[in-house]
């Protein structure tokens, strides 16, 4: 039996107008049209979406989790990027 599989697709769904597409999972399909049809059946059976994106999983490039400290620690230490870092006199109501 041929075990040649259809390619894997990552599925992104916009749940309602005005929101981002969000990753919901993956599925296999022969082409992008079938991927969208299948995504509709697999991921929107209860009105979870109004728009679907599919992306070939092989086209997704991910950061390396073992590099997380080097990548994200520098921004953790820059607390002056947050408004709470600054003192505002009590007399000032809005700033």
């Amino acid at each position: 039996m041929s075990n040649k599989e259809w390619p894997l697709w990552e599925v992104f769904i916009r749940s309602k107008q005005g929101l981002n597409h969000k990753h919901v999972g993956s599925l296999r399909a022969a082409d992008e049209e079938m991927a969208i049809d299948n995504a509709r059946d697999v991921y929107t059976r209860r009105s979870e979406g109004i728009s679907i994106w599919v992306v070939l999983s092989s086209n997704v490039f991910a950061s390396d989790p073992s590099e997380a400290p080097e990548l994200y620690e520098p921004s953790d230490s820059k607390i002056y990027r947050h408004p709470t870092f600054y003192d505002v006199p009590d007399e000032i109501q809005h700033m």
Partner: peptide, 12 residues
């Protein structure tokens, strides 16, 4: 279902 999967692959 094999022929269906093969046909879909060929069509794609």
């Amino acid at each position: 279902g094999l022929w269906v999967r093969e046909a879909a692959t060929a069509y794609a």
